[in-house]
Every structure is written in structure tokens, then in C-alpha cells.
Design a protein around this nucleic acid. Structure first.
Lengths: 241, 241
DNA sequence: TTCTACTTACGAACGGCGTTCGTGTCAAGT
DNA sequence: ACTTGACACGAACGCCGTTCGTAAGTAGAA
């Protein structure tokens, strides 16, 4: 190349963009991925799309995450970090546990169907560990035997996640509010009511009942069942009032 | 068929296969798909592979199923059909419910991780409807109020499925028996025990406890919590003894 | 029997996916 | 100025679900 460095061939469009891209980092990838999930849902999250949003190629992400599963795992832990931790020094431990369960469900549901990647596994992320630690402190403080605490933690996670998954699926299908869900619920009721009454007497009879109650009421019911049951293991003084 | 039907012209390799291919049907597709899931797991189930197993191309399957989701839905209903239905005329309804829940979990777990496709949705398949009908009959027979029956059905399905999913994931990872799972569980215990004790005192203290109890024991615990709680809604005479 | 009409079957192709490989790029160290 | 090494990433591989246009098979009409 004789003519020195050609300054900048202006007749040829600048090959890329003015860039100004932050130099890429695990943090930036996670933020972008979470933004994508919040905007388009979990199924729309692909390595290619995240990279594209960052102005790079999919291959670049593998410098920070071994694979997509690892990215999703860290994404979920980030969301778990949004859950306000329970306090162990409250007078009414049952209310505090229920409050935390509701908060967990709400946080999960506020990120579309991201919760679908969750499994009630042993927690490994930092935020999941903190969450588990805080809930364990609360339960042990109530005088619940250790083994029951361990099992109850598992079970609560499972119920929260399962409920959030179901909730998020409804929302993905456009049943966000009660008003939006009503046509769908009526369809379900009519479908059940139209079954042959001789083979399905109970389903037919309960058709109107089956669609009763909001998601919140049903979750409340499940929580009460579980946590009131748990309370029978607690130190007698543990119950409020 | 003696000498009349030419036994098998061995000099010319059978151009395709010995054929004997049943002429393709929804039933044949479902059987093949289920066989594939049982052999290789849910992730290995693709339209192409099912078709290949049937000696045809993927496109042919779309004559019987609108898409893969529909195939999976019917596959799951087929498996639900393997669950023995509860009887409504038993003296101890609680035991019957628990027995059925265990049976459900066992059936799901006997088909690798197929249960992962399940959602605790309103049942639509024939077998799911029969299952729901039978359980509703049992609960209503116990004198549980209708609304509670409806909610409890939902909740039981969710717990069974969530537990089966977790169980199946463990099994997919090679932790089939207690002996096989022990190395993994010990790792978990050591990981938890090695956490900084000042930030995670309860997790550290409970490290040995967290891995206690087989999957069956934990499921039993969850079921007792839920169903004993349910029993408080039942007609007083409902309880056994 | 022959021809047409219609159903069913399916090879090939489309666009997308997760992941890998080998090269390109550029700043720091020499 | 040259070397080195870490980082970045375009291109390609082998999958996937799904669609489309055509081929094969069958039944009825002529």
C-alpha cells in the first residue's frame, strides 16, 4: 500500500456503525437478555438476537457464558435478586412467609415467562442462596424442625414456580387481566358443561365452579393449605395471637 | 403361508424394508413417539425422528397432527390414561387420594421426562377428563365444598407434575437410584457446608439436613401437608377411624 | 378397460436455532 | 516498530419445525 494510509474512503459507506458500543461484558449481556425477555418473551430469546441487540455476533457471547443454559441460569438468579428478602425478627412468621411467597410470584410474573426456566433445584446463584438463607432463618426461628424446614423450602419453591409458570402462560396467551380472561374462562365453562353428563357428572356439575376465583385467590388457597400445615410443626408460641 | 407365497427373495436386497409398514395413522405415530421418548428422552423427540422411525418423512406427520405441540398434548393424554383411576366408594378417601397421587407420579416418571410438557391446565384430552372426573367424585364424596374441590384439583395436579418434573430431571442426569444419587448429594452437601458461615449460617448448619430424605419421602411430606389440610374442609364423618 | 378427480404421502427447501472454528483486530509489552 | 496475546466475531455445521408442490395411489365415471 504505497499512498500511505488512505484517509477514509468516504464514497464507501462506513463499514459498520459509529459503534460507541460498550465493550461487552457478562453484565451487559444479561441486561440485554432480560430486556429482550421482558419485551418479547422467553421463546424469542436466542443467542443470535441477544448478540444482534448488542451489535455483535452470537459467537461473542460464548466468551462470557459457556452456553445458553448458563446464561438463562444467571438471568434467573438476577431476577430472584429482585425479590425482597423476608425478615426473621417479625412477630407473625406465617404472615411473613406468605408475604414473601406472594412477592416471589409477583417478581417472576413481572418478567413474562422467564420463570419457565426455573427448577426447584438446589440453589446455586448468589441471590438464590440469599433468598433460601433468609427463608430458612425465618422458618427455623419459628421453631420448625430442621428436616421439615428443608423439605418445606423445596415445596414452597415448587409451588411458587409452578403457579408463576401457569400464570405466565395465561398472560402470554393474552389473558392478562380478569376482563381479558373472561371470554376464555367462559369457553372453558361451556366446554365442560357440554360434556356427556352420564360419564362426567361431576365435571358438568362443577363447570361454573371450575372457573371461579382469580389467580390470586387460588394461590392464596394453596399457600394457606401449605403454610397452615407447616405451622403444626412449629413451636407452640410460634403462632401469632 | 407355505410355498405359495414366495418366502423372501434373498438375492435382491429388500429395496426399502420388509415393509409391513402399517399405513400410518395417528395411533401409530403416537406409539412410535412414545417409544422414542421412553428410549431417548423428550429432547430427542423430533418430528423428523418419529417419521424416520416410521420409515417416512416428517411432512407426513402433519396429516394427523397440526403441529408438534398437538402431538405432545395427545402423547401426554395417552400417558395419563395409564394412571389407575381412584374409586369413589372407599371408606378412607384421604388414603385413596394419596394413593392416586403416588400412582400419577409413578406413571409420569416411568416415561422419562415427558411430563415436562405438562401444564396444570384445564384438561382437554379424554383420559385427562376421566382422571379429573374420578378425583372430583372422590373429593365431593368426602363432603368437600365444590369450590375447594376445584381449587384442590388444580393444586394437586400442579404438585404432582412439579414433583415428577424434578424427579425426572434427576433421573435424566443419571441419579436413578439412591445409590447413584449419593455422590451428587454429597457434593451438594459439601458445597453448602463450604459457604461463608457468617453470611449463610442456616444453609451451612442445614447442609447435612438439606440432602436428607428420598424423593418418595419428600413427596409424601408434600402430599400429607396438602391433603391433611384439605381434610379440614371435609364433612366430619369423612375422616377415617 | 381407460381416463379423470381426488385423497394421501412426502422430498426438498426455508428460515431459524445453538454451538464451534479459524481468522481478524487491536492494545500492551518489549 | 515489532511481537504477542487476549478478545471479537463471520461463516459454517448440523440440527430443528413447518410448508409447498408434486408424485403415488385409489375410486368412480365413461
Amino acid at each position: 500500500m504505497p499512498a500511505a494510509a488512505i484517509p477514509a474512503p468516504p464514497w464507501r459507506a462506513p463499514k459498520k456503525a459509529p459503534a460507541a458500543r460498550q465493550p461487552l461484558s457478562a453484565e451487559a449481556v444479561l441486561s440485554t437478555a432480560l430486556r429482550l425477555v421482558d419485551r418479547d418473551g422467553l421463546d424469542a430469546l436466542s443467542m443470535r438476537r441477544v448478540a444482534q441487540e448488542l451489535g455483535t455476533g452470537a459467537a461473542s457471547l460464548y466468551a462470557y457464558f459457556a452456553n445458553k443454559d448458563e446464561l438463562l441460569e444467571q438471568l434467573l438468579d438476577r431476577v430472584v435478586g429482585e425479590i425482597p428478602l423476608p425478615r426473621a425478627d417479625v412477630p407473625d412468621w406465617k404472615a411473613e412467609v406468605k408475604r414473601t411467597c406472594f412477592a416471589s410470584r409477583n417478581v417472576f410474573c413481572s418478567h413474562r415467562d422467564l420463570v419457565r426456566v426455573a427448577r426447584a433445584n438446589i440453589p446455586t446463584g448468589l441471590n438464590s442462596l440469599r433468598y433460601t438463607e433468609a427463608l430458612l432463618a425465618l422458618l427455623r426461628g419459628a421453631g420448625i424442625p430442621d428436616r421439615i424446614c428443608a423439605w418445606a423450602m423445596d415445596q414452597m419453591s415448587m409451588v411458587i414456580i409452578a403457579d408463576a409458570v401457569e400464570q405466565s402462560i395465561h398472560e402470554e396467551l393474552g389473558r392478562r387481566t380478569e376482563a381479558e380472561a373472561e371470554p376464555y374462562l367462559n369457553q372453558v365453562r361451556d366446554y365442560l358443561a357440554a360434556l356427556p353428563a352420564d360419564e362426567f357428572p361431576n365435571l358438568v356439575a362443577l363447570a361454573p365452579t371450575m372457573i371461579e376465583g382469580s389467580g390470586d385467590e387460588r394461590f392464596q388457597f394453596a399457600l394457606d393449605l401449605m403454610i397452615d400445615g407447616l405451622a403444626t410443626y412449629a413451636r407452640p408460641a410460634g403462632g401469632a395471637a
